[in-house]
Amino acid sequence: MYAWDKVEPSKDSTLRIIKECVSRGFEVSYLTKHDISIAKGKVVGKVKKLISQETTDAVEFYNTMQFETSLRDFTEFDMVFMRADPPVDTLLLNMLELIEDKVFFVNKISGLRKANNKIYAASFDDGKETIVPQTLITKDIDLIKSFVEENKFDKFIIKPLDGMGGKGVVLFESNNVGNLSAICDFYINHTGYPQPIICQNYIEGAEKGDVRAIVVNGEPIGAIMRIPAEGDHRSNISAGGSAISHELDDYELELCRKIGKQLIDDGIYFCGIDLINYKMVELNVVSPGGIVPHNKVNNNQEIQKQIVDMLLDKYKEFKK
């Protein structure tokens, strides 16, 4: 995961998962990607074992935490949660993939390699917008212009391939694209070498917000509606959006389950699926959040309990 001092305890989903596991009597340790090594042919980590005080309050749980540091073989652990923020470190995946058949990873390392970016979500594009809006991923600015013109988009989105939390998402209208080339050129070339970016049809209703569905083992188990802050088209909570309760209707449930079948096949057991107007616009497979706002708008229902229950069921299958 990210460093402990980067945790925002009042709203951090990872902390809720940790606290739930501790409350069940599990030994829990954490480490960052910088703490992982290979020694004597084994994948090892300098882990910090959590020693906590008994408390029901998550903020107090965080603030009173103490740690014991040791070097541990990863295969000594039963379950490893991958909770570092994107983009994923490919060297880290290379190291952990050596042991993915020996340890239950949430999510599976080979699955993260396949699905950790927005390219995976774009693979659901059938050109008919059955599951996702029409999507182009490219480094070619002329191709973006042609894509927009040929499909007669009234509005469209440009965003970086490795963005998160709504960062870098730019909304364009077809009759006002004067700075399209400049924006695309910046995103493509800002690192010093060309990077592909995403151009996507704007789904009507996005200005009203999106639905974040929490999907575990291919099954949608809860959702919130995220409402953009005034004057902003992004509904991400981290971008200033707010959350209200949302009950998935039959079509949304079926859509999530359809996507969930592919997720299970790829070893993605815990995922956030973002929906707008019955279209999937994004998948968060690396570090899905939304637990705290979900609990808050659903009368403090602690969805992390159900998440851990379902992942333990999957762990039992893995051990057979």
Rank of each mutant, 00 (worst) to 15 (best):
M1F: 09
M1R: 02
V7M: 01
E8C: 04
I18W: 00
R24E: 10
E27Y: 00
V28M: 10
S29Y: 00
S29W: 00
H34Q: 10
I38F: 00
G41Q: 06
K46S: 08
K48D: 13
K49N: 09
I51N: 12
Y62V: 00
T64M: 12
M65W: 03
L71K: 12
M79H: 01
M79I: 15
F81K: 04
F81S: 13
R83L: 11
D89I: 02
T90E: 12
M95A: 13
L96Y: 12
E100C: 09
F104R: 09
N107Y: 13
L112R: 07
A121C: 13
A122H: 11
D125S: 02
Q134H: 11
T135I: 06
T135E: 01
K139S: 15
D140F: 06
D140T: 06
F156C: 11
F156V: 09
P160Y: 07
G163L: 04
M164V: 03
G165N: 10
G168D: 11
F172V: 11
N175K: 07
N175W: 05
G178W: 12
N179Q: 14
D185F: 07
D185V: 03
I188P: 08
H190W: 02
H190F: 13
T191Y: 08
T191P: 05
P196I: 05
C199K: 03
G205I: 12
G209D: 05
R212G: 03
N217T: 06
I224V: 15
M225W: 08
R234C: 09
S235R: 01
D249R: 09
L253W: 03
E254D: 14
E254V: 03
R257P: 02
G260Y: 01
K261F: 07
Q262S: 13
G267D: 08
G267E: 14
N277T: 09
Y278T: 03
Y278V: 01
E282M: 11
N284C: 09
P288T: 02
V292S: 05
V297T: 08
I303S: 04
Q304T: 06
I307H: 02
M310G: 00
L311C: 03
L312T: 08
D313A: 05
K316N: 15
E317P: 05
K320V: 08
